[in-house]
Amino acid sequence: MKINMRRTLISLAIAGTAVMALSGQAYAAGKITIMVGGITKMVYLPAKLTEQLGYFKEEGLDVELQSQPAGVDAENELLAGAVQAVVGFYDHSIDLQTKGKEITAIVVFGQVPGEVELVSTKVAANFKSMADSKGKTLGVTGLGSSTNFLTQYLASRHGITSKEYSLLPVGADNTFIAAMKQGRIDAGMTTEPTASQLLKTGDAQVLVDMRTVEGTVKALGGLYPASSLYVQRSWLNKNKDDAAKLARAFVKTLKFIKTHSAEEIAAKMPKDYYGKNKELYVQALQNSLPMFTADGKMPPGGPETVLSVLSGFNPNVKGKHIDLSKTFTNEFVDQIK
């Protein structure tokens, strides 16, 4: 009798635990976690700004923003199912399709990369273009990241293969600045506000500027849609209502960016984003504003440019059939009036 009673109590305890676990899952299911590939980078400004402006809550969304130092790390979190969405570069959706993974961008933030290839002032006299990258150490945020993709492509345009230089993952922000100042990299690709910080101190000079449409077309041959919100297609097919709400929230932010000054936008950001040098942050933001789309839509011809760039050096993509229609959709941003 005691044994049966004990079994009953154990069964009830297990059942109770299961109920608690299920209720926890149900609660978690109402939350959307977005991983950002470096939340303080200005290319990904719409992520934090949307939160600051309260647009997620306006749409009835419970969103948590997390950050990884590189887009490739954020991508891995998405593929593992640890997060529901990523704010990262669109080019990952093409690269991943070749590996059997279906990732779809649903809002495009940047019509250009917003990246700058900086060369250390110490070696600038003998490093005038990417044609001089042979034998050099080039900094990227992470191996397999979009900065990695773009660096390889820019070198390949001058006939230099990835075996002729070294790539060093140095992250972004302070870790990138330290790598440049310490001479661990000869040149490297980064975004604002890091670029403006190194230019102001005189530790670096601009080698390739992809913060503007003009500079991007010159470097890459066309518009290069970059920062975006992307999700796994399997999640998208089951959560179209949440996808539509996310799209509305981010497009509101993009419209805010287009209708407000750099000073007004900076005033909405947390103080730790600009620290003690708000003036430099505002200037860097002013330099970055042209990169953002006004409506979240994929720019015409953009996917083709990205595919052309990746095909130029990436053996995973070169010669492969890529269905670009599966790498992005304007379905949700088109619904916004």
Rank of each mutant, 00 (worst) to 15 (best):
D209H: 09
D209C: 10
M210V: 07
R211D: 05
V213I: 14
E214C: 09
E214W: 11
G215L: 12
G215A: 12
T216S: 13
T216F: 09
V217S: 09
V217R: 15
V217Q: 14
K218L: 11
A219L: 09
L220K: 01
L220H: 05
G222S: 07
L223P: 02
Y224S: 03
P225R: 03
P225S: 10
A226E: 11
A226G: 04
S227P: 07
S228I: 05
S228V: 10
L229H: 03
Y230P: 01
V231S: 04
V231L: 14
Q232E: 15
Q232Y: 04
R233E: 09
R233I: 05
S234G: 07
W235Q: 08
W235A: 02
L236D: 03
K238E: 14
K238Y: 07
K238P: 00
N239I: 11
K240P: 05
D241V: 15
D241N: 15
D241F: 08
D242Q: 15
A244M: 11
L246S: 03
L246Q: 04
A247Q: 01
F250A: 03
V251H: 05
K252Y: 01
T253F: 04
K255T: 00
F256L: 08
K258R: 14
K258N: 09
K258H: 13
T259K: 15
T259S: 15
H260T: 04
H260Y: 11
S261A: 10
S261I: 04
A262Y: 10
A262D: 00
E263T: 05
E264P: 04
I265R: 03
I265W: 03
A266V: 06
A267S: 14
A267H: 13
A267N: 14
K268Q: 15
P270I: 09
P270S: 12
K271T: 13
K271Y: 03
D272F: 13
D272E: 13
Y273L: 13
Y273M: 14
Y274H: 08
Y274C: 10
K276S: 14
N277W: 04
N277H: 12
K278P: 03
E279Q: 15
Y281A: 08
